[in-house]
């Protein structure tokens, strides 16, 4: 049986702004299975607030937001 923890996909959205941050996250989530996790890297502050909020509205779960630098964040999402 596959370990769920290892089923993590990464997406680097540095340089992207709204709504492309959400569009690309959404398209990536379509590629993975329900329950799997996606880690997205953002460097645009409004996206770090808005993309997780919008994803929650779509039913997905935000497992954590980690600040990695001055303008760098990693958001961990579990697909609904």
């Amino acid at each position: 049986m596959q370990d769920m923890v290892n089923m993590t996909t990464e997406l680097d959205l540095r340089g992207e702004v709204c709504p492309y941050t959400f569009v690309k996250t959404k398209l990536k989530l379509e590629d993975i299975e329900s329950g799997e996790e996606l880690i997205v890297t953002f460097d645009h502050a409004p996206a770090v607030e808005n993309v997780p909020r919008s994803l929650k509205n779509e039913g997905h779960k935000i497992m954590g937001i980690e600040k990695k630098g001055d303008h760098l964040w990693k958001v961990r999402i579990r697909k609904a």
Partner: peptide, 26 residues
């Protein structure tokens, strides 16, 4: 639209959502 606000150096205001185009779609 938080991106447009950021581009114009507009700070946040209480009671108003600094959201995204997703909010417009909603």
């Amino acid at each position: 639209c938080a991106l447009n606000a950021e581009q114009r150096k507009i700070g946040k205001v209480d009671g108003i959502l600094f959201g995204s185009q997703y909010d417009h779609a909603c």
